[in-house]
């Protein structure tokens, strides 16, 4: 009996491990293929059967830098993700503080309403926003796109910070009040240090989401304020598809954020699980 149970457990474990690996490879394959393609010539890229062994070339990358100035797009991405995150935090921290520690009758509804805006298809408001932006001259401007990025991430940022603050016992805040702190001092001396993990992970998440955002940047920006997402898109449109260059642009877009994600894995997971993993 014992032995049976043990071998049964082992078999189950093997099945689980194999399925996990298959799934992982399936998910990872497109990324691998993209990486390989970015080092091929355009001809190699479309050859059938696909080439696995070839002589790698850096030609695509130099072309991208020459033709579209990769670094200018990279700068835009950095600017947009950075500033939208900073502004979102500046707005969300006080909002989350108020909602977590001084909830009113409708705080729960407000939270739901905020997150529900994320359930709306973005394309539904594209036309009005496009028109507004055109009329006030924010199209293809870093300021305009930063505002949009801030607004689309704000609900998530408030939401995560709210739960992070909610984990902080209210009595600690009351002890602060009894000790004579101002609201600002409560933030600086107590709330920020206690919730540093949650705040950092929220910031990272917001940064990553803004970096990856493509819908709004493709539709509202071009050369001046375009992010790396628009750079990728530019290789798929007017003059037909260039697989190798498209892949190279994609790789250049993904790489920084994959590296960032790699180093901050723990923080991001903590943010997404609302601080449950410590």
């Amino acid at each position: 009996m014992m032995a049976d149970y043990r071998s049964e457990k082992r078999v189950k474990l093997i099945i689980r491990a194999v399925s996990a690996w298959i799934l992982a490879v399936l998910i990872f394959f497109p990324i691998l293929w993209m990486t390989l393609t970015s080092f091929k010539t355009e001809l190699q890229a479309i050859s059938i059967p696909p080439l696995l062994i070839f002589e790698p070339t850096l030609e695509n990358f130099t072309v991208i830098q020459e033709r579209s100035n990769y670094f200018s797009y990279a700068f835009n991405s950095l600017f947009l993700a950075g500033f939208s995150t900073i502004i979102a935090l500046a707005l969300a921290l006080p909002a989350a503080y108020a909602m977590a520690f001084f909830p009113g009758k409708h705080t729960k509804n407000l939270l739901l309403w905020m997150i529900s805006t994320k359930m709306l298809p973005a394309v539904g408001v594209l036309v009005p926003i496009y028109l507004i932006y055109r009329n006030i001259g924010l199209l293809d401007s870093l300021v305009g796109i930063t505002i949009i990025f801030t607004l689309i991430n704000l609900p998530i940022v408030v939401w995560i910070l709210y739960f992070s603050f909610k984990d902080t016992p209210k009595e600690i805040l009351e002890a602060c009040i009894m000790d004579g702190t101002s609201v600002f001092q409560q933030f600086i001396f107590v709330l920020l240090p206690i919730n540093l993990g949650g705040i950092v992970s929220t910031a990272l998440l917001s940064f990553v989401l803004a970096w990856n955002e493509s819908f709004w940047s493709i539709n509202l920006s071009a050369n001046d304020a375009g992010s790396l997402a628009t750079l990728i898109a530019s290789y798929s449109s007017p003059e037909g598809l260039f697989w190798a260059k498209l892949s190279a642009a994609s790789l250049l877009t993904c790489l920084p954020i994959v590296v960032l994600g790699w180093f901050c894995q723990k923080q991001i997971v903590q943010g997404l699980t609302f601080g449950a993993v410590k």
Binding site: E174, A175, M178, G180
Partner: peptide, 15 residues
């Protein structure tokens, strides 16, 4: 903070 009182909480509420 101006009442000159100090409070000890059930959950200690230490920083």
């Amino acid at each position: 903070s101006r009442r000159n009182m100090a409070m000890v909480f059930q959950s200690y509420a230490l920083y």
